[in-house]
Write a protein that binds this DNA or RNA. Structure first.
Lengths: 237, 237
DNA sequence: ACAAGTCGATAACATTTTGGTTACAAGGTA
DNA sequence: TACCTTGTAACCAAAATGTTATCGACTTGT
């Protein structure tokens, strides 16, 4: 009964990303465990380092941040992010419990504030409430293997590294990622990527376009994302 | 100094309505006092009775509700309101501190939860944070990096230095600051900045307008706030 | 296995599309 | 009128995409 319920929740929340910043490793692991169990996709950090870079690539729905971090203070970091225009919901964690801290946390743009020790259950409830209130923004991304296509940003990431694609290349790759391992024939690609209106459509247009795409996402040719299907078209491996 | 600050805050928040439901009269009065002092328009109730009728007439921005009320339980009442489609933000108050209560409060649609005794200061901070997250913006400035847009004054500040913008330039920059790092396509900008009524809309209108904006906010071109997204539009970096 | 035919890969070149910039015109406002 | 704002047009540059040619690889029939 319980496990069934959990698996159902996993299904629902699978796409919700949460960022966790906490320098005490055991607490970080504990929270990661609880959040993952609920079906959230959790990414943990031991400091604010690298978090900003992460945010440029992903669009997490929530951040849970310790106030007391090595290097940059948690609230300082959030204030910094707010100044940069990030509106992501934030729950602060703190060992201290002085009103000044509380105020600093909220004033720097936090949405909620929990004082250690707290029950994981309460954190989950507060996270859920905050996500509900924020109107959980579904992450508009499509993934395949190490490829990640952010539709909104119109950007491809390979292992987190951004790769610039042209419009045509983007549509082409999108078509393949939507149908992985499927041979896509030339007619389908013409409709899907180019639009079926073109009366004159040269045979080799697709070849050349795919060739350019291949070179851009795998210049050394070591990964071989695509394979030709003779007489039909191509497929994404 | 303090009073001056308070009066300024009052000016800003004057129009924000808060509903308070609390059966202990002394607590009700205490909270009414603190909230009013901050400039909120507070309406207090000793029970859930009549609240629904009140909501039909007014649109308060926040409700602060005791869990333990005569007649109908606070969480039960909020659940009832949620079922009716009310999305108003809710902060629960409770004397008890058992996890079951907490869960019931959040599950019934509450946004935050405070256990008595609590400091009025913390309640104010939490109320403010929740209002901010709900989009009730008492302050009308938008920031992005070193850009600060004062909506009311219709003025841009760069590192505190005022820069005069034309109407069009202001709307354009506002659109971008509201969606930082996102490519905004030409159709979106036409709707958002120009208004979709225009039948004849030249291709280059946006180019020229953005060009003028770029020159005005960064004459030397060293900061590169904007980047073109080929075939799509532009984005604010 | 081999030859012919078909299709894909690739590179070079051509064309089209799109963005940047400037100058000028139309309209509004002090 | 003298400005200021905004739209329009013209031109150029850059980027993206299409076209063509050549080569090589696979398939098939004998």
């Amino acid at each position: 009964m319980l496990s069934k319920n959990n698996s159902m929740e996993s299904m629902e929340k699978k796409h919700i990303e949460i960022v966790l910043i906490e320098d005490e490793e055991d607490i970080l692991e504990l929270l990661e465990y609880h959040l993952s169990k609920e079906g959230y996709a959790v990414t943990g950090f031991l400091s604010t380092e690298n978090v900003e870079q992460f945010l440029e690539e992903e669009n997490p729905s929530l951040m849970i941040v310790d106030r007391n971090l090595p290097g940059m203070e948690g609230s300082e970091f959030i204030l910094h992010l707010r100044r940069l225009g990030y509106k992501i919901p934030v729950i602060f964690l703190t060992a201290r419990n002085q009103e000044g801290d509380l105020e600093e946390g909220f004033k720097s743009g936090g949405d909620d504030y929990m004082t250690k020790p707290f029950s994981p259950k309460e954190l989950l409830l507060r996270a859920e409430a905050l996500l509900r209130r924020s109107g959980v923004t579904a992450n508009n991304t499509v993934r395949y293997k190490d490829l990640m296509l952010d539709i909104q940003k119109h950007q491809l990431f390979i292992n987190g590294k951004p790769i610039d694609l042209t419009n045509l290349e983007f549509r082409l790759l999108h078509a393949f990622i939507k149908n992985p391992r499927q041979p896509l024939d030339r007619d389908f690609l013409r409709d899907e990527v180019w639009g079926n209106d073109s009366t004159t459509f040269h045979d080799k247009t697709i070849n050349v376009a795919l060739n350019r795409l291949k070179k851009k996402i795998d210049p050394s040719g070591e990964k071989s994302y695509f394979a030709p299907v003779w007489g039909i078209g191509y497929k994404l491996l």
